[in-house]
Design a protein around this nucleic acid. Structure first.
Lengths: 161, 161
DNA sequence: ACTTGAAAATCAAGTATCTTTATTATAAAG
DNA sequence: CTTTATAATAAAGATACTTGATTTTCAAGT
């Protein structure tokens, strides 16, 4: 029973470590490219989703819509993203990654992507299924509780400044 | 062979999803407490390491030492951290979490921590060992490549502004 | 001991980012 | 066809960040 609890603690710690190391990696890339952290969060989102809207980007980065506009102006000027009208809603725009971003960030991430692919390939099918299952459940928990916190955001705490 | 590649892709995607959902969670907490994202990165680090130095905090958050000083001033004024002299080096200070932070953030995270603990407890010992192993290796890869990028930070790209 | 060069934290000035509030245009509902 | 809500933007003000200089201390070398 103690062995079991040790294992549980190890998984918790490992999940934290993994999370922290991802933050450090993102920060390193950001400094390298002269981006602020919200910039790279935005670009991460777009890299995965392909296309998004300023509204969703604002939610993801935690920015107000005002600063999201400013951020998208920056990134568009740097040719990292493109804005185009949303055919389904003339109020809105769609934001997508521009080729320039791939060319810029590619050399910085291709090695680690290769390394992670090799790491994953070294596991058995059974193990991979277990790992994927765990990660998805873990993420789903996080999403559920994020939603709760956002819902309770109407009587906000005061800022610290 | 195709099944295997599907599984590999699933793990990659799941890892990304997990990472993204953690960012969203952190941003939600930050907005709730009126913190900027570097503040909560700093507090995360301190929650895990217990005690740290402004130098290490600067590296972790990607801030300059100058803005780290300002950030620590903010957090100290809010009673979320404490500074105390470093007995081993009179130039430096040690930074640690203050009780006030635990009391403030505790209610916001205890439910999800409970949920994650239950999720983890639902796996067999074998599975837990596999998951921990994977997460640690994954994180170690990220750390290694973060280090490389930081090393190459001497001929930096130009900022985008 | 005494210099020298480096390291840790801080400070002050300037710049950039973020929030707030208001505005424009469009959508959806009554 | 008014009313209310939503999406994005703009401008002004507040906040956070960077840069460069300063202070104190450390670690070697002489």
């Amino acid at each position: 029973m103690n062995v079991k609890r040790d294992l549980e603690t190890q998984v918790l710690m490992a999940a934290r470590e993994s999370n922290i190391s991802s933050i450090l990696f993102r920060n390193a890339i950001s400094r390298k490219l002269g981006l602020v952290s919200t910039d790279s969060e935005c670009l991460s989102l777009l890299s995965i989703k392909g296309v998004s809207t300023p509204k969703d980007i604002a939610r993801f980065t935690g920015l107000t819509t005002g600063s999201t506009t400013a951020m998208l102006d920056r990134l568009e000027k740097a040719k990292f993203i493109k804005r185009r009208p949303n055919p389904a809603d003339r109020r809105g725009v769609l934001v997508e990654i521009n080729e320039q971003w791939t060319k810029t960030v590619g050399p910085l991430v291709e090695e680690i992507q290769q390394a992670q692919a090799e790491l994953i390939a070294s596991y058995s099918d059974n193990d991979l299924a277990t790992i994927a299952d765990f990660l998805i459940r873990f993420a789903n928990n996080v999403k559920a509780y994020t939603h709760r916190i956002e819902e309770s955001l109407n009587q906000p705490h005061r800022g610290i400044t």
